[in-house]
Design a protein around this nucleic acid. Structure first.
Lengths: 185, 185
DNA sequence: GTCTATACTCGGATAGAC
DNA sequence: GTCTATCCGAGTATAGAC
């Protein structure tokens, strides 16, 4: 991993842990083991680094989700597998959490990957729901788009509750309280 | 409203909009129309002000929820009324959003109202669900505690999705996708 | 490419006058 | 109670040497 990569990785972690204002160039450099000059040689400044970091995080998140969505099993099985996947719950969602960051939301370039990734996720899950309805796995009167929004909300809210209580089990509870309603026992 | 009150109100708004690090004493003073000396006369510093602000917000949120929960109607009706209540969706949940603020979560005094309010909310909704189950309004095999966690998660996640898309309708969609699963048509 | 030096603003607070 | 002056460190960046 070269210097530019290490700088991006450091920025990703700090942005996740501390948000935009809480992430200083100095902290990025220290975590990356790079000097000031080096950082400003590779990137124009903090906004440019943040952009690279957020874009990389968004791609990674989409790729991991897509791996589950296009895996083996029925639509319902793939959806349930995604919802129950191992997660670093107490750190929060690296994309959803940015939603609460005013500096990120105020900059169109930083915001776009957040907006885009969550919209893509809703769309992809709506596809799975529709597929499951067609296959008779879900109730035939489910609205795929709305239901997908609810599903993503349960996950995002699960992160919030788990962090509030400092207890990852609340994420699992949110999912466990939801699945029976979908007909998964 | 006296000076101390105006300082607390300013801090509440700024904390909501900009988070802890993003909220400077100077900004608090300007919004409250108070000088430096005045602020430091009434409060020991930024942490003390933040504590007062967060505690007030937590009390206000609980009180508003409790007004719905203990209102008229069946358990299910009160729950649905709460979920469909008018909200300032695009500003995010003033309590749930703090979950993403590392400075708030790192300070036990700032964190406690966040943890406490969301736990209280889950408990109170679990009561409603149990009451609804007993009254035959909900399926008899619902687990009240887990279901309540899911319900709060749908709301918190609804805020996240609405902010991400800059569209309050996503909050409503998350709720609208959920209620039919609970048997509300 | 990376380093060090320098610069300027802001955050957060204290001191003492009124 | 409120005001102004002052202080120190941190955040963010530029300049120029190596």
């Amino acid at each position: 991993m070269d210097t530019a990569d290490r700088l991006i990785e450091s920025t990703r972690e700090l942005l996740w842990e501390r948000g935009y204002v809480g992430t200083s160039p100095k902290a990025i450099q220290q975590r990356a083991g790079a000097g000031q000059g080096s950082m400003y040689h590779h990137f124009e400044g903090k906004p440019a680094l943040a952009r690279a970091a957020i874009e990389r995080t968004a791609e990674e998140m989409s790729a991991k989700a897509e791996a589950q969505f296009s895996g083996a099993g029925s639509a319902k099985e793939r959806l349930v597998a995604y919802l129950r996947r191992e997660r670093d719950v107490l750190r929060g969602c690296p994309i959803g959490g940015l939603t609460q960051d005013p500096d990120v939301m105020a900059d169109p370039l930083l915001r776009a990957p957040v907006t885009g990734t969550l919209a893509w996720l809703r769309g992809r899950i709506a596809d799975l729901v529709a597929e499951g309805v067609a296959a008779g796995e879900f109730a035939s009167d489910l609205d795929p788009a709305r239901t997908a929004t609810t599903i993503v909300a349960v996950m995002q809210g699960g992160y919030v509750l788990a962090r509030a209580a400092d207890d990852a089990a609340l994420f699992d509870d949110a999912i466990a309280g939801f699945l029976p309603l979908l007909g998964e026992h």
